[in-house]
Design a protein around this nucleic acid. Structure first.
Lengths: 359, 359
DNA sequence: TTGTACGCGTTATCAA
DNA sequence: TTGATAACGCGTACAA
């Protein structure tokens, strides 16, 4: 084990082994057949010099590949990963990308004062944009300019960009219609954030007009297709406690007294919100679904609901992530990426029922 | 806008602008002062050629830096991100690393059959190992061999590796002692997984002997310091539903009848487990803390507990992540990384009380 | 302030 | 099966 002053390179190894650098290189890449004896010698030399394999930086300069796919998450990283849907998507993405041995580089899209956005100079082979809001247009622009393959998941991208989309509006309208058909007239919705500000507040025309999150808007549109004047509040995120807070706003006054004109059904834009809403409902002494119908959206394995089965529309989150990964893989192969559209599926649970007589 | 057959390089831009490549380079790196007129010309040429800035691959070969820090998460990525503690840690890490403009590369440590582990040839400047179990020793070995700076968070690494640690045993003993001092005699624990198998089962001497997760063992040791013979069950993960399941096992028989000899207190190894335990308790018709004391560990903002405040020990998860990032930053500066030890802090809530008289 | 020259560590190509 | 050579695209002493 000789201790050099600097790290050994493949050239050193080659010299030590008495072969050319190209031969040594081939030994490590394994792309071409090498005589066993030669390989042995090279490996021995490498071990001797403490050579840990080709420098990925140099290799990627030469090959033009870094083996890394950048994933741009809207908003803060922690929020993104608190959401089971995102998590499931990442899972599918990880899976698909693992099959082409690509790593995942987490990239933020929040603009910092001075620096350039990380996407501008990250050594990635391709980029996946998730949950695009307005800002992400910039990210998209940057990426396109760099000529990187890009796939957008549920975002508002241009025509030429492969997109992974969901029938948010239709699915939302579907479950809304079912609630309507149960006989509910006074129905409210709890929505996801409208924009990066993530304000908790009642829905107003103005706020909707200024909204930038497509998912929220699409699901809201589906709700409004059925309940054109249905009231709603926006949550600050897809969190149980947010649903709890929002539901209290809808159901009770400041003193915690249940309003006489409370809705008989709540349509939440995510399962987590629905779970929170159910908790709030029960705490107010109402029962689900007898006193109040609560439905969700996503179809995640709603951890935290105990034994009650949530009525919701299930989205194929994992498949979405996987599809994104597969399209990235295709594009890296030089083929054209394709947009993929997914549909949700209604899942009957135990949290929806007709309104009580007389309401 | 000329359309070349291949992407423009900085040399093309320089030529187009009538300056040398070094001047062009300097314009983009911004390290040295450049005459405004020159800069303008270079930028114009770049825009003209559709040059999107220096190729990160080439730049990183040249500078020896990729601006990427690899994060190796024990187990599957999705599990890791379902855990609020991990999430908070990642948050702190992100934060600290953002200040040195480093990206985060997600690395798995589950061994694939054929390929080399991703850590072996990812273009990272440093590595953070999180939640090390047995397998991670290999990852550590690989990283050390590559000569990369590495920081281990709550893992069993060697002496020379900077570690971010927590007083798991002491904190666990502390809260156990408080439960003891309330007068509880029959106390059970719900632990985190003992190993990668993540089995749900009662604690046995054999299982403990084969355990590989230091965090679980340390917290268990603290519990046993106070309740040497206290029974327990292991959960399959730090999840609410896991706590629910585990608590049912401890409190009731298969028919859901509360055992006569049920514990009067449950010490859970995580807040999520505690929340699940509380839910199970209430579903069995018992009240917390009147009928049963339940305490947790972590001090996360326990989303999903409604209005009840959990009694727990809070760990500085965010600070842990940040500390790891800071040590990485130091090491990248050429300084020595230091180990950092954090302590937990008891947080009185509303879920612990003396046992009912006569129990 | 700008230009020259070199090397970062590799791999692809082609010829031997 | 192996070896020589030429890029890959850039940053940075150093000199001008």
């Amino acid at each position: 084990m000789s201790t050099g002053t600097r790290r050994a390179t493949i050239a050193d190894v080659a010299r030590e082994a008495g072969v050319s650098t190209s031969t040594a290189s081939v030994v490590f890449s394994g792309k071409v057949n090498v005589a066993d004896a030669t390989r042995e010698r090279v490996l021995a030399a490498a071990a001797d010099l403490g050579y840990a394999g080709p420098d990925p930086r140099a290799a990627s300069l030469r090959t033009g590949r870094s083996g890394i796919v950048g994933v741009v998450l809207g908003g803060e990283l922690r929020h993104a990963f608190l959401d089971p849907v995102t998590t499931a998507m990442m899972d599918g993405l990880t899976d698909a990308l693992a099959s082409i041995s690509a790593g995942i580089l987490l990239l933020r899209d929040d603009p910092r004062d001075d620096e350039p956005p990380p996407i501008a100079d990250a050594p990635v082979d391709a980029v996946v944009l998730i949950g695009c809001s307005g800002r992400t247009r910039d990210a998209l622009e940057t990426v396109r300019h760099r000529g990187l393959p890009v796939v957008v998941i549920e975002g508002d991208a241009g025509e030429e960009v492969p997109q992974i989309s969901l029938d948010n509006r239709e699915a939302s309208a579907d479950i809304s219609r079912r609630v309507f058909q149960l006989g509910h007239k006074r129905v409210a919705t709890i929505t996801l954030p409208l924009d990066a500000a993530r304000e908790r507040a009642p829905l107003t025309r103005e706020r909707i007009a200024g909204a930038t999150v497509p998912v929220t808007l699409d699901r809201l549109a589906g709700f409004r297709d059925v309940f054109p004047d249905g009231p709603g509040v926006t949550a600050a995120g897809s969190l149980i406690d947010e649903g709890y807070i929002a539901a209290r706003t809808l159901l009770a006054d400041d003193e915690g007294i249940v309003r006489a004109d409370r809705p008989t059904a709540i349509i939440a834009q995510s399962d987590l919100l629905a779970v929170g809403a159910i908790r709030a409902t029960e705490e107010l002494g109402l029962r689900v679904p007898d006193d109040l119908t609560v439905v969700g959206f996503d179809g995640i394995a709603a951890d935290g609901l105990g034994s009650l089965e949530l009525t919701t529309v299930a989205q194929p989150a994992l498949a979405k992530g996987r599809a994104a990964g597969e399209q990235v893989a295709r594009m890296l192969e030089g083929e054209h990426g394709e947009s993929v559209h997914f549909t949700c599926e209604f899942r009957a649970g135990e949290t929806a029922a007709p309104p009580r007589a007389g309401r």
